Computed example of a mutant assay.
Amino acid sequence: MKKVYASAAEALDGLLRDGMSIAAGGFGLCGIPELLIDALVDSGVKDVTIASNNCGVDGFGLGKLLDTRQIKKMISSYVGENAEFMRQYLSGELELEFNPQGTLAERMRAGGAGIPGFYTKTGVGTVIAEGKEHKDFNGETYILETGIVVDLAIVKAWKADTSGNLVFRKTARNFNVPAATCGRVCVAEVEEIVPVGSLDPDCIHLPGIYVHRIITGTHEKRIEQRTVREG
């Protein structure tokens, strides 16, 4: 099965449709699938629901899809650092489903593992719990959260072999692994593709069984908040 594609546009060919759902890896601007996001912008696909920790920043990352009004709904845990996100949400142009960060990661992981739902204490007594099933366990109240399964997952890794095994670099692993597993199809962009057998099996973070298409390219890797000490 061919997994390596020449470009982001080719890797997404035949996978996109209006109204689809997408899970995107990354945390802030760390480990985001920059090239695949740009290809989504160029495709013109619209009314998309995106599950991602956040929505990039103004003019970069998933924020580009906000600028072009291609996103209908975000399932996120953090909406700071993006004035356009806030503006669209407050004006009613963008639907938003808030999730605590750990809950969002677990919803993705559960969806990828075939688990339809799970109970958690996080969010009990807040707006997060509104409209959800409540259940007591050992005298404590929990709420039911459902697993997330999406049409497409887009992730960013450090290395891949040609069979799709992925290695992430340090904190860039973040949401990428659970996001990859919950997609019916997963497209990964990487910095380097190596032959099968080149990766130490003990260092593989995501097995190739989850990855359907791979691309490589040059990444900007913009820094979201640059903090330096005084000279």
Rank of each mutant, 00 (worst) to 15 (best):
M1F: 12
K2D: 12
V4L: 04
A6M: 07
S7D: 09
A9M: 04
A11N: 01
A11Y: 09
L12R: 03
L12F: 08
D18V: 10
G19I: 01
S21I: 11
A23E: 08
A24G: 07
A24K: 08
G25W: 02
G25S: 02
G26T: 00
L29P: 06
C30T: 09
I32M: 03
L36T: 15
D38S: 13
A39L: 05
L40N: 13
L40Y: 04
D42F: 10
D42G: 07
S43H: 14
S43T: 11
G44R: 08
V45P: 05
S52G: 01
S52E: 00
D58K: 03
G59F: 00
G61F: 05
G61E: 04
L66Y: 01
D67W: 01
D67C: 10
Q70I: 14
K73I: 11
M74S: 03
M74C: 00
I75K: 07
I75C: 06
S76D: 03
V79M: 13
E81K: 14
E81R: 07
N82L: 03
A83S: 13
M86I: 11
Y89H: 12
L94P: 04
L94A: 08
F98G: 12
P100K: 07
Q101T: 01
Q101L: 07
L104T: 05
L104V: 11
E106K: 12
R107G: 05
G111W: 01
G112P: 06
I115S: 10
P116L: 04
G117H: 15
G117Y: 12
Y119Q: 13
T122R: 06
V124H: 03
V127A: 14
V127W: 05
V127S: 01
I128W: 10
E130T: 14
K135R: 15
D136A: 15
F137D: 05
L144Q: 10
E145Q: 15
T146Q: 15
T146K: 14
G147P: 10
G147Y: 05
D151A: 04
D151V: 08
I154V: 15
W158H: 15
K159A: 09
K159E: 07
K159C: 02
S163Q: 15
L166F: 02
V167I: 15
V167T: 13
A172I: 00
A172T: 08
R173D: 10
P178V: 05
A179W: 03
A180H: 06
A180C: 03
T181L: 08
G183K: 04
G183T: 02
R184C: 09
R184F: 10
V185L: 06
V194A: 08
P195Q: 14
V196M: 02
S198Q: 07
S198H: 11
S198I: 04
L199F: 06
C203P: 03
C203N: 13
I204H: 00
H205L: 01
H205G: 06
P207V: 12
I209G: 07
T216C: 01
T216M: 01
G217Y: 09
T218W: 06
T218H: 12
R222F: 04
R226I: 11
R226W: 02
V228R: 04
G231R: 14
G231Y: 13
